[in-house]
Structure formats: structure tokens, C-alpha cells
């Protein structure tokens, strides 16, 4: 019985992925998934850091107060609405109004980058707040500006502490990109759909792309682990 099941799987796999050239679709999908994820991840990390620092600032400057309000609004709205709705809204309503014929991949990158930034900002904010106040005071008494103190003293310690949580965010981001098929991007998930359209068989294509997603996430986890070990060099434990 079991042998028959495996036999059928390998037959379907061969038929869909090799004979019907599903591997080409998967490779193209993999490229799109990786490209969108990586670009969104970078945008999210930069945006998240900036928003976190703005939210933590105690400045009473009018400009800063307004910026803080804007940042609060941003995290509230982005975290309060589904990413799929944001994607559809951007693709069908916002982009046609401000940038006609925007490449759909660019739309996806921007939507996922902005979305990820909202979550990352809260993670980074918690990391910054967890660094002892004495660290900031020590930096400032040495004559460093608040910006340099943040960049050279507080942020490196914060990032070390939040790396596992940040890893979670990145993993979630990669898997969330599987909804880009809704706006017509041929990502990994879409590739599986297209293969089923050729073979009328669902098991093999979806298992195949699941394994590809899994490989990406395992690779990322390894990379983060390596980075974390380097940062923990100073811990002596």
C-alpha cells in the first residue's frame, strides 16, 4: 500500500515537474519569491529601525512630535488591516492613481516592505528599551551625540537581543509573499497552481513547493544563527 503511494507520488512528480517542465515555473517562482522577500526585508528593516527610533525619541520639537504621531498612525493602520487587503488596495486603487503601469513586482515589494516595517519597528523598539539606560548615559557623558550613542552603543546591543524575534518576522514575511499571485505575480505558490493546471494532480506540486519554502526558511535560520553566534562572542557564556 505504502509502496504504491510513493510510486504514484514519484510518477506524478516526474510527470508534472520534469515532463511538463514544471521545474521552469518553479525556478521562475523561486526567483520572484526570493527577490520580493529580500527587497521587502531590507525596506522593512530600514523603515522599522527609523520608526522605532522616532517613537522612542523624547524630543519636544514640533517636527518630531508630528513625525511621532505619523509613525503611530502607520503602525496602527498597517498592523490593524490584513496584508492581502493592503496588497489589493495598492495594486487596484493606489498605484493606478499615483504611478500608472507600475511593475507588479515593485508594487509587491513596496507593500510587503511597508507591512514588514510596522512589525519590525515594534520588535526593535522593545530591543532598544531593554538596553540599560546607563549605556546611553555613558555614551552621552563621553560627548557622543544621541544619534551616535544610538548607532554605536544602543542599537548593536538591542539587535543582539532581538535577533530571534527578528528572525521570526523575516520567516513570516517570506511565507506571506505567497499571496502575490492575487495580483498576478508568478511566485512559488503560483508555480504550483500552474503545474496543477497542466496535470490535474495536486499532491506533487504543492509538496514540491512546500519543500522549497522549507529550504529557504532553514537556510535563513542557519544564516541568522551564524550571525547570532558572532554577536554573542562578547557574552562569555
Amino acid at each position: 500500500m505504502r509502496v504504491v503511494m510513493f510510486d504514484k507520488f514519484f510518477h506524478d512528480f516526474y510527470f508534472g515537474i520534469v515532463e511538463k517542465e514544471g521545474y521552469k515555473l518553479i525556478l521562475e517562482g523561486l526567483g520572484n519569491t526570493l527577490f520580493i522577500s529580500l527587497c521587502a526585508l531590507i525596506i522593512g528593516a530600514v523603515l522599522g529601525t527609523v520608526v522605532a527610533i522616532v517613537k522612542i525619541s523624547k524630543s519636544k520639537n514640533v517636527f518630531m512630535v508630528l513625525l511621532k504621531l505619523l509613525c503611530s498612525l502607520y503602525t496602527t493602520i498597517i498592523r490593524g488591516t490584513p496584508i492581502l487587503v493592503q496588497l489589493l488596495l495598492a495594486h487596484f486603487a493606489i498605484f493606478p492613481a499615483i504611478y500608472k503601469n507600475a511593475p507588479i513586482v515593485l508594487t509587491a515589494i513596496i507593500v510587503f516592505g511597508i507591512n514588514s516595517g510596522a512589525y519590525v519597528s515594534e520588535v526593535i523598539r522593545s530591543g532598544i528599551l531593554a538596553v540599560d539606560k546607563g549605556q546611553t548615559e555613558a555614551g552621552r557623558t563621553l560627548g557622543l551625540s544621541s544619534f551616535k550613542t544610538m548607532r554605536l552603543i544602543v542599537l548593536p546591543q538591542a539587535i543582539k537581543n532581538i535577533l530571534p524575534a527578528l528572525g521570526n518576522e523575516f520567516i513570516a514575511l517570506i511565507k506571506e509573499t505567497s499571496i502575490v499571485a492575487y495580483i498576478g505575480i508568478r511566485d512559488l505558490t503560483r508555480a504550483a497552481q500552474q503545474i496543477t493546471g497542466k496535470t490535474y494532480e495536486f499532491f506533487a506540486p504543492y509538496i514540491t513547493v512546500s519543500i522549497v519554502y522549507l529550504m529557504i526558511v532553514i537556510g535563513l535560520t542557519q544564516l541568522l544563527g551564524l550571525f547570532e553566534r558572532r554577536l554573542r562572542k562578547s557574552d562569555n557564556r
Binding site: 546607563g134 548615559e137 563621553l142 560627548g143 562578547s234
Partner: peptide
């Protein structure tokens, strides 16, 4: 204030060395 703080050293009860640096 950053300019003047350079000329005023401070030592804290809790040392406040930067743990991530040698």
C-alpha cells in the same frame, strides 16, 4: 552640550562599560 561633556569625565556606580566592545 556634547562639546562641553567631552571635558567632563563621569564614572558611574554601575560602571556602564559597553558590553559588546572589547
Amino acid at each position: 552640550i556634547n562639546l562641553h561633556r567631552r571635558k567632563m569625565g563621569m564614572v558611574f556606580q554601575q560602571f556602564n562599560l559597553f558590553p559588546h566592545l572589547t
